[in-house]
């Protein structure tokens, strides 16, 4: 599986098992997220990017699509374990303004 889901209380943690999260995966990722939000009613979502060293704009577009879906239903998506280059990208493209970024899972869980 490209995405592993674990639950902690009512928080859903999605681990992305890809080294490059790009447009090849962007459609399936959006569908996966939307289904999780709509069907399984996942409101508090943390996405763990640990193995990912490259994310492209299509994949992040899907992530924003997921966030839109989630905020519709009064939920939120936070991200965790960004590799330095990916973190740089979140910084210069100002995406950190819409996604809270964490380095520690406990901090992320407590932030909800």
């Amino acid at each position: 599986m490209n995405y592993t889901v674990t639950k902690r209380n009512n928080i859903t943690i999605i681990k992305i098992n890809l080294s490059q999260a790009t447009r090849e995966h962007s459609k399936e990722f959006k569908l996966f997220l939307v289904e999780l939000i709509q069907q399984e009613k996942a409101k508090k979502i943390i996405i763990d990017f640990e193995p990912v060293y490259y994310v492209d704009s299509s994949f992040l577009g899907s992530l924003v699509g997921g966030l839109k879906e989630s905020t519709n239903l009064k939920g939120d998506i936070k991200v965790m374990n960004l590799n330095p280059a990916v973190k740089s990208l979140f910084e210069i493209t100002r995406l950190y303004k819409i996604f809270e970024i964490f380095t520690d899972v406990e901090d992320a869980v407590l932030s909800f």
Binding site: S58, G61, V64, L89, I92, T93
Partner: peptide, 15 residues
Amino acid sequence: LTAEERAIHDSFQAV
């Protein structure tokens, strides 16, 4: 693409 997706693509390219 949605407006958000297009904005992300454009901004990424610019940056």
